[in-house]
Structures are given as C-alpha cells and as structure tokens.
Design a protein around this nucleic acid. Structure first.
Lengths: 217, 217, 217, 217
DNA sequence: GATGAATGAGGATTCATTCAT
DNA sequence: TATGAATGAATCCTCATTCAT
C-alpha cells in the first residue's frame, strides 16, 4: 500500500504523468529495489502496476529506460540541490560550527533517505552494473558534491574546527560514518531495536572527535 | 588472465576439482562480479571458461548453486576464522593497545580483501537479493563476528583505551571507517591516485581519536 | 489437413480462442496422438501450428497445461454427458430392450469416437503416465459412469433380460467387447477390410448371448 | 526389491549377462513401465541400477536399443512359443472341449502376465509410438498367433462347439473378454477387491455362451 | 568391463519488445 | 492512450551419447 505518493510527486515533479504511469513507476521501484533490475521482468512490473505489458513500453522505450527514469531524478534530487543549499548556508555562516552543520545535514538528509529508501537502494545496487550510471554518478559526486564539500571542509579547517588533513579524507571519513549508520540501521538490521537519537549523537561526536584539532598534540 | 589460482586454491581447498571446474569457477567469479549474478548467462560463463555449457551443470546443479559455491566459502573463509585467530591474540595480550590491534587487523584483512576482491564484491552485491544469503550472512556476522568483537571492545574499554559506549556502536563506527576506505579505494575510485599508507594511518587516527577516552572532558 | 474444426468447436465450446490458439490445439492433438506427449517437442507443435514457440506459452503456462487442456474436455464431453442422456432414456423406457440400448449406445458413441479419435487416443495413452489424470479419470468413471451403468444394468436384470451377475462384471464384459472392436478396428488393423455392420452385429449378439438368462439352465 | 530375477532369467535366457547388465535391465523395465520410454532418462536408469551412465551404453548402443532388448524377448516369449505348444495340444485333442482349452489358456497365460506385468505394460504402451515395433508385433500376431488360433477355432467350430462365425471375430471377442479382465484387474483397479476365481469363471462362461451354437435358433 | 567427465544439440520456458486494434 | 496477442531470441537446463582413463 504505497503511501509515498507525495515523495513520488516531488521526485517526478515537472513530469506530466498519467495515473498508469505513476503506477508503473511505483511498481518498478518496489520490485527493482527488492530483486534487482536484472531479475525483474517487465511482466512482473505490469502485473503489480495493474497495467498491460505494452503500456510500459508506451511510456518507456526500453526496460533500461524505466530504470534510468527512476535513477536519474533520484540522483539529481538526492545529491545535487541539497548541497547547493547547504553550501550557501555555510558560506553565509548560518551554521556556526562544524557540529551544527553536521547535525543539520544528518537530520535533513536522513529524513529524505528514509522516505526514498527504495529508490536509493536501487541507485546503489545498480550503479556497479551500469558503467554509464557509474560515470554519471561520479560526475555528480565529484563535480557537484565533493567540490563543494571540499570548500565547506576547508572553511571549517580555516576556522580551526577540523584537523589539517586532505579535505577528501575528511569527507570520506565523515560520509563513511554517516552511511555506516544508515546502512546498519535501515539495510542490515532494520528489525533490531535502535535508539536513533543516541546513535546519531554518538556518530556526530565520533566524527567531531575524530577530526578535532585537539588531536594534534 | 586469472593469476589468482593460489587464492582459489585456498578458498576452495579440500574440494577436489577438475581443471574444467576451476575454469568455470574463475569465469563465474569474474563475470558475476562484473555484471551481477542475474545479468550473467551460463552460456557466457561457459564460453569464458572454454567449456561446454552442459559441463557447468554437471558440476553445479543450477546456476544458483554455482553462485552459492562461490559465496559460501568466501563467507566462511573471509569472515569467520580470521576473527577467531585475532580474538585469541587479543585475549592473550599479543596486541598491547587497541591501536596495535586495529593496525594488525586492517593490514591483514586488507591484503586478503585485495586478493579476493571479486569474490567479496559478489558477496555484497548479491546478498540483498537472496534472503537465504542474507540470513546466512547475518548469522555468521552476529554469531561469529560481532559476539567476539564485542568482547574485544570490552577488553579495551576495561583498559580505558576506548570510550564508554555500547560495543555495537564502537564496532559500527570502526567498521564503517575501514570499509569506507576500502570501498572508496577499490570500488569507487580505484583509478585515482591514493597514498595508501597515509590514508590508512589517517583512518586509524580518526578511529582512535573518535573513540578516545580523552573526549570525556 | 485438419477437417475436424467442427469437432473442436464442440469440444472447446464456451472457450474463447484466438485463431492461433486453435491452431496450436489442433497441432498438439495431432502430434501428441502420434508420438505421445513426452516425445513431442513444443518446437514441433509450434511449427506445425505455424506459430512462434512463445505463443504456445502465452496460452498454456506449460506443456503439461496444453496436454490437460486437451484431455480435460475430452474426458468431460466424452464420458459424462452422454451417459446422463442415455441413462434417462433407459429409465424412461425409451429403449425397450437391452439390445436396443446396446445398439443405440454403440452407434452413437462409435460416431463420436471416430471423429475424436486422436483425442481419445491421447487420453488412453497418457493416463498411465500421469497419476492426476488417472485419478481424475477414475473419479469420472466411477462416479459418473459406472454408478449410472449399474442402475441401467440392474434395470435390465430386473426385467430378466440380463443374467444375474454383479453389475460391474456385466459392465466389464460389455465394455470389453465393444472396446475390443473399436481398438481392433481403428487402432490395430485400420487398414484391414472390415465389414463394420456385420462385426457390430456379431459383437452385439455375442454380448447378448453371453449375458442371456437362458444360460441358466 | 526386485524378486523377479527368475522371470528375468527366463526372459533373457541364453543371453550372457553381467550382474550390472541385469541391474540395468531391471531398472529400465521398472522405470519404462512407470513413466514411459520417452519420459525416462538414461541417467535415471543408471542411478536406479547403481551403475555409471556410460555402462548402459557399453551394453546397449542406444537408449532405443535398451527398449528393444526388453520388448523383443517379451514379444517372443510371451506370444509365440506358448501358442505353438497349445496348438499342438489342441490338435492332439489334449483339450477335450473349447472350455477346457480356454480355461487352460487363461490360467497359464495369466500367471505369466502377472509375473511379467511391467514388461507387458511397456510392450503395449510403446507399440503405438514405434512403427517398427508395431510392424514387428503385427507380424508376430498375424503370422504366429492368429494363424494358429484360426486353426484352433476352426477345429472347435468343426466340432460344433463354437458358433459359425469368421474365426477372426471369434478370436477378437474372446481375446477382448480376457484382456478386459486383465486390464481392469491389474491396470485400472488393482486396489479394488476382486474375487479372481469367480470373475475368471464368469468371463469364461460369458465367452462360451456368447459363442455357443445354441444361439442359432 | 566400467567409469564418469565432457559434450553440444535440443528441451521447455521466459523475456523484452512490437504492433494491430 | 492503452491493450494484450504475438514474436523469436535468449535463458537455464536436460539429454543421449562419447571417450580417455
């Protein structure tokens, strides 16, 4: 019983879609994320969407097209615009400390990730198998994200809040720690009992201390 | 041009295999890791292995069987026995500090991971799609690994080297940081220039400071 | 050169069928009856039907399904309804004597059998190899046919036309004699010259005398 | 747990066979009779026989060869020699009446049929699918059996014990009645309770009266 | 004689895609 | 726009048969 229509509407905004097309996308997202693109048949999607198989191909030339039409906006909306926003906020000193920034990012993005979980799962599951996607992803990451993140990191390094270390490494360690939580929490052990708030706090503290300038002595 | 016969011999030791069977396994590992299990055809494997397609099915009842015969030993040899070894070493105080332990583990496992990279890639790529594998993996992880790691962590917590924090969280943060490096280094940006030694050292320092008891003030 | 469309239309009435589907059924009946279900390949059927192999599986999930979709209606239309009809006629004394009944049955059923010969051949050839079919057949036979035939036999036994003998035995002997003719005539020696009328008459007389009450003395 | 070694020894006498070869034959007979020739794989036979698949082909050039090596002697020993024996007995007036002859035949052949049931089942199941077998069978039947049976029938017709009717028809009716019993008894309803003796007697009486000259009035 | 690994042709079935309606 | 019948290439797998040991 997909409740995430709203999320869909955001992700696929400015795309006019028939009711059926939405159903197809929903079904595809659900099955792709569950069984993987390759192991999913268009027939299966059609059935789950309550649509004739031909209808899928009216809207998406090929099965791959359908995949891309899910991944592309996920990539675009998930990664790019967010950082632009935060980036400006940082430069404008809206986040007074690295800690503030970190906390804001985690809370904000986590919400998004939770809602769009299946889409993101597809994204990471399929990237290794589709070189074009990989390329696209790297470009996004490197050009839009890392570039900006570097500037942010350097900003906080200048302020003396972050240890002197190649910004890429700072980014890697920070992202690892956050993703490590997300993956453990939602992918690997979703049914375990988690004290989300405490875990997030611990993760933030871990990152902050791990990157603190006090380590220098 | 598979040069990793030695690794194969270790991973599939105590299994008598025809020359052809080895060829099949090698081919399967290579293609599975590249395109994913589902997108790989047995025909393709046969061709790459220089074998008739029927031969595959003489040795492995089904394609899935072939997958499992790759994953199972990878799981067994990669995860379980290693920790048992290290576990004892820790208890016997062979590693004087958490830092020593961390460094030993990283160096040792990294070597193995590098050699068996394709197998491990398959392992992580396929687990999300095969509930039995997931189950098996969790069991391995939880029963054999986390249980022991917890004891190790508690040992170093008692010694005052690690901050007082639920051991699972310590494990999560540590493992995230290490895997973050491995994934970035070997999966996402293998072609970038990496100063491995420095990056490993930074990762270790990050973990140590992130978990240090001096944070407490 | 299938001329039996009419028969098909009867046998598969109330089933909407594509032209192609009919072609598939015709081809299947012909080849199944000739070479047996197991020795028939779907490829062969497709070719004879002038259809792509995939088309077969659009209409019948499996090859077995195709077989059943031939056998089930044959069983239903061949066995069940006929006897119900005759059964009522007997009870309504439309057949004044056992001889009349016998003659009517033979002539009527013989016509049907001749037309649907391949279907019936398949029925009897495949039953021994498919336990579910066997079960289904027995149920049909026992519940619908023998039960009614028993009543008919008992009716004529009451009238003193048939010797006092377990009705099953009467049925067995009668059916054997008739089927013996059909099998010899159409299955074993179809190319021999047969004086059908005379042979049928002799068969009827044989049964009548074999079961006559005059034997009693 | 095949107990019919003796039967095998008779059927395949004057053929030198290794232990393995016997095992193969036994397994083949069992599976062929159960699933049909076409649906039986040599692999299956090999497994049941406890033999390597290659061994089958040491002894029988092809799978068909194996089938024939079962059917041929069954045909030869079941049909031919028996009638020769009985034939002579009839001519030598060893059977004083048609009834005696009938009874002797039924009892004698029934015994054989019961023991060699699977072989005979194979015979009748496979004949429709193998034209050469059909031909071979017809030849056996027509040349060796019917020809002689005709003479026997004519003998009893001369004696006035059998009604004046084409001998083929007499044979057909007689054989039908007997086979009708065998098929019902052993093939169709083997698990029903049968009073064998009574049923056989009824069958004999049915045939005798059906063919009696007293019918002539 | 017996084995069982190896074969490749052929088996049933699935698949993404097309197209007439 | 939507359908669903039709396709035929491709898929996984089975088979009878061969052959080196």
């Amino acid at each position: 019983m997909p409740k995430r229509d709203n999320v869909f509407d955001i992700l696929f905004e400015n795309q006019e879609m028939t009711e059926k097309q939405k159903k197809i996308l929903e079904a595809a997202v659900e099955i792709f994320s569950e069984k993987g693109y390759s192991a999913t048949s268009t027939n299966e999607i059609a059935k789950k969407a309550g649509v004739a198989e031909g209808t899928i191909f009216r809207h998406y030339k090929t099965k791959k097209d359908l995949l891309l039409s899910i991944i592309a906006p996920t990539m675009a909306k998930f990664i790019a615009p967010f950082f632009i926003r935060d980036f400006n906020k940082v430069l404008l000193s809206e986040y007074q400390s690295f800690e503030d920034f970190l906390r804001a990012v985690i809370i904000n993005r986590m919400e998004f990730a939770k809602k769009n979980f299946p889409m993101i799962k597809i994204l990471f599951q399929e990237i290794p198998f589709h070189p074009e996607l990989k390329e696209q992803f790297k470009e996004h990451i490197i050009n839009h994200v890392i570039k900006r993140l570097k500037l942010i990191v350097e900003e906080y390094q200048k302020k003396g809040e972050i240890i002197d270390m190649p910004p890429q490494t700072v980014i890697r360690l920070t992202v690892s720690s956050i993703l490590g939580f997300v993956i453990g929490r939602y992918l690997m052990f979703p049914e375990a009992k988690w004290d989300d708030e405490a875990e997030i706090e611990r993760t933030i503290q871990f990152i902050l201390h791990g990157l603190s300038t006090y380590n220098k002595e």
